[in-house]
Amino acid sequence: MGLVFAIEEFSAFDGPGIRTTVFLKGCKLNCSWCHNPEGKSLKNEIIKNNNGCLGCKKCIEDTGFLTEKSILKCPKNLIRFAAKEYTPEQLAEKVLKNKDFFDFSNGGVTFSGGEPTVQYEFLVKCLKLLKNKVNRALQTCGYLEEDKFKVLLKNTDCFLYDLKIIDNEKHIKYTGVSNKLILNNYKALVKENVKHYARTPLIPTVTDTEENITDICEFLTDLGENKIQLLPYNSAAGAKYHLINKKYSPCFNDKIQCNPHLEIFKRFGIKAEIL
């Protein structure tokens, strides 16, 4: 069984064509700018939308806390489980209901998260089930063991691969993990010549520094790569933290506009596209 916290039809910026994006729970990184906080944990927690809460406390009147049954008592329907469980077959069937659109537009399915590779077994089963039926994209941070990544390389048609920070110490500081696996897996991806898009989230003062952008350019140039997609920081990133009863506290000043440093990309001859 897999834990899926959202299935979004017509996600316009998750790969080519008309696509459905499947968001899998769980992530090993801990980026403070994460805009899907309900996707981080591998636990299927109960989440509550506080907008419109009447404060009637019907949801906790029986036991004092939220339970599977008690949340149904909310008269405003504001409480639910963060994710739904799917078997790979159920998920494949659901995705394929929109196959006609994918074929029509050269689109397909994109697995995202969280970090989709955290539910590795489930992901691989889904990818295999969908093989030759629909274009399969994977939106990943690339943080997993190299042998596992090699299996994914064989079962994925297109990667949307996050390159956040090249300096390892800074990567650890801002995401909680080393980028060694990430950069190695990216090299494997390029070597195997699987279709891919490198993507950098532009986080003000974190990833959008002159130094980091230059590092990214050098990294890509060394691999013979010449294009990248940039995802500007969205100030709505904190919008969902209230669902998991947490405060959004980014480790940077999010009032600052991010700087895409297009001149650096230009200098390296890298085509940078802002999404």
Binding site: F10, A12, F13, G17, I18, D100, F101, F104, S105, I274, L275
Partner: peptide, 22 residues
């Protein structure tokens, strides 16, 4: 937001065309 770049515009246009063809 979806119309913010050419990709979004193209995909919406594809959706419209799909609807008409079907």
């Amino acid at each position: 937001n979806i119309f913010r770049n050419e990709y979004g515009v193209k995909k919406v246009a594809q959706l419209v065309q799909w609807y008409i063809l079907h």
